[in-house]
């Protein structure tokens, strides 16, 4: 499918963690400006896809490809990149559980991140984005997101509530303006009003420029981010894709119809659950 927009193209992706295969052949193409929703029961491999896209060292890609294909057709092999190169190439993962970095102010952290993502060839030690310019931009973004500037002076995710962490992730998304973003349950831990605010913010940040994959169990986050496609993951594969009505159905009725319709994937889900149980014992 030729497209004018830059695309993130995932083909036949297999990913293992500690020797256990979690993803068993994922195909997904996201164009810039598109919103895709990824749903599925716990343990189906949604977060694994996010980590694999970002290059987490514990997630081993055993087969398949992840590429950024630009409008000219040139292909960039994401799997050959280190995690920081991926970020600089325009990929972003909003973590389900962001890490805290005590003693490092969110503003300082973001200044490094923004500088690097805007100057992908920057070597450590080279100039950071000028403080005044950075501060003005940060203040403006925080105002747009109704965040108190005091927040940026706090240490990265240190002592943050679940909701504060998610808002900090959205702030970073807004500052970094990636080409493609995976938002891993950015709605979890938020109350209804906060989810609505997050949904609006993401829509405003994303605009026509960003390709977004929203991993969620709910449909509220999609209120202002109407997905072009909703994908259902089960047993490490995307088994069905559809429109917004699919998200609504899954939210209301759960995954029983899906499990019945895709017995192979349901069996894989069961096997993964059992081996996880065995590993826990």
């Amino acid at each position: 499918m030729p497209s004018a927009a830059e695309q993130l193209v995932i083909k036949g992706l297999h990913v293992s963690v500690e020797g256990q295969e979690i993803l068993k052949g994922v195909d997904l193409t996201i164009g810039r400006g598109e919103v895709h929703a990824l749903m599925g029961p716990n343990g189906s491999g949604k977060s694994t896809l996010g980590y694999a896209i970002m290059g987490h060292p514990s997630y081993e890609v055993t087969a398949g490809s992840i590429e950024i294909v630009d409008p000219s057709g040139a292909r960039h092999d994401v799997l050959a990149m280190e995690p920081d190169q991926r970020a600089r190439a325009g990929l972003f993962l909003a973590f389900q559980r962001p890490m805290s970095i005590p003693g490092v102010r969110l503003a300082d952290f973001l200044r490094h991140a923004v500088t690097n993502c805007r100057n992908p060839d920057r070597k450590e030690g080279q100039e950071l984005m000028p403080m005044r310019e950075f501060r003005n931009e940060l203040k403006a973004k925080m105002a747009e997101l109704s965040m108190d500037t005091e927040f940026a002076r706090r240490y990265v995710n240190d002592g943050f509530s679940g909701g504060e962490m998610k808002r900090a992730e959205i702030l970073q998304l807004a500052m970094l303006r990636p080409k493609f973003a995976v938002l891993d349950e950015t709605d979890s831990g938020l109350d209804a009003d906060a989810v609505r605010l997050a949904s609006e913010s993401i829509a405003r940040i994303g605009g026509a420029e960003m390709g977004i994959l929203i991993i969620t169990h709910h449909e509220q986050l999609l209120e202002h981010n109407i997905p072009l496609q909703t994908h259902v993951m089960l047993g490490g594969r995307i088994v069905e894709s559809g429109g917004p009505e699919l998200a609504r159905e899954l939210h209301k009725l759960g995954y029983e119809r899906i499990r019945a319709a895709y017995p192979d994937a349901a069996a894989a889900e069961k096997a993964m659950e059992e081996s996880a149980k065995a590993a826990a014992v």
Binding site: A87, M99, I101, P102, V104, A113, N116
Partner: peptide
């Protein structure tokens, strides 16, 4: 990994974490 996922090199990330430790 979190810091690298935001574009910081491994060394830069390590330095920030250590600087934070001493803060």
């Amino acid at each position: 990994f979190y810091a690298r996922a935001r574009g910081l090199s491994a060394e830069e990330a390590a330095r920030l974490v250590v600087a934070g430790f001493f803060q």
